[in-house]
Every structure is written in structure tokens, then in C-alpha cells.
């Protein structure tokens, strides 16, 4: 490119009116060709821009691992817990229902037939009362105690005298 054109472009460049393509042409001129002395200061400028373009970040940015995996782990864990509770509840209700099958009416205990239930109940009650009677037989000696107490009526005399003394 001839010098006059370059100078004109350079002037436009400083006015900010050059296009990107024209600036690229200026850049190639200043970085490759022999530059006349009066334009020498701009050589460094374009060299600097050229150099700045090569600058790269040394760090590699790694997006953080998404927490989605942990989200699914949480979901899986809660499903396990819920299923566990459900199963435990199922087993519990099964055992209670098996008991309920035998005794439909809680008033009859383990018996199916009401007659039998009544008989058995009477037997049990008799057994209990017989034991109570046995225990009561030993209490006959309380009569002795009662009789001895009767002998103590004379104490009343003593009491009477004591009362008259107080008067």
C-alpha cells in the first residue's frame, strides 16, 4: 500500500472513522512493511495490539458439578425410607389381623362358642372362690380374739372411777 493512502487511513483512524477492515490493513502494514521514520511511533502501537491479542487466560474454568446427582440420591434414599416404613406397617397389620381372625368378638376371649365361654368362665370363677374360702378358714381364730376382748369390759369400771376423780 502506498504511503499516502496509509497516512490518510491513519488520520481517519485517529478520528475513529475507519472500519474494522481498514484497521486490519493498517495493522498488517505496520507489522510487516518497512515503516518510514515519521510513522515509526505507531509501529509499536500496532505491535502492542497484535501482542495483546495473543494473551490468553491460563486458567481453565471447570463448571462446578451440578448438585443434580445428590438430588437424585436424596430422592432414592427417601423412597427407600418410605418403602421401608410401608413394609413395616404392612407386617405389623398382618400380625394383628391374624389375631383378629381368631377372636372376632373381644368379649368372648379365645372361645368361639358362647356356651363354652360361659362354662369356662364359671369354672375359673369357682376356682378363684375356692381359694378364697381356703384362706378364710384360717381366720376362725379371730373368734378367740373376740372372746378375750369381752373379758376387758371391766376396764369400764376403771374408766368410771377415773372420771369421778377428775370431777
Amino acid at each position: 500500500m502506498e504511503l499516502a493512502k496509509i497516512e490518510k487511513l491513519l488520520e481517519a483512524y485517529f478520528e475513529g472513522s475507519t472500519t474494522v477492515a481498514e484497521e486490519a490493513a493498517l495493522r498488517t502494514y505496520f507489522t510487516n512493511a518497512d515503516v518510514p521514520p515519521h510513522l515509526a511511533p505507531y509501529k509499536n502501537l500496532f505491535a502492542y495490539y497484535e501482542q495483546q491479542q495473543q494473551l490468553t487466560s491460563t486458567h481453565t474454568v471447570q463448571p462446578p458439578r451440578s448438585s443434580q446427582r445428590y438430588l437424585w440420591m436424596g430422592v432414592a434414599a427417601s423412597i427407600v425410607v418410605i418403602v421401608g416404613i410401608f413394609l413395616a406397617a404392612m407386617v405389623g397389620t398382618e400380625s394383628t389381623t391374624s389375631r383378629v381372625v381368631i377372636t372376632e368378638d373381644p368379649a368372648m376371649g379365645t372361645y368361639q362358642d358362647p356356651e363354652e365361654a360361659l362354662r369356662k368362665t364359671k369354672e375359673v370363677l369357682n376356682l378363684v372362690s375356692s381359694y378364697m374360702h381356703q384362706g378364710k378358714q384360717d381366720l376362725v381364730y379371730l373368734h378367740e380374739f373376740e372372746q378375750a376382748k369381752k373379758g376387758l369390759v371391766y376396764l369400764n369400771e376403771f374408766e368410771n372411777t377415773k372420771n369421778s376423780l377428775i370431777k
Binding site: Y13, F14, E15, G16, S17, P41, Y42, N44, L45
Partner: peptide, 14 residues
């Protein structure tokens, strides 16, 4: 405008 101003300032210094 800002571009022109900046470039001129650079030129002046250069």
C-alpha cells in the same frame, strides 16, 4: 467519540 479521544490521547503520548 470515545474511541477517537482515546486514540488521540495515545498518539499524543507516543
Amino acid at each position: 467519540a470515545a474511541l477517537s479521544r482515546a486514540r488521540k490521547a495515545i498518539r499524543e503520548e507516543l
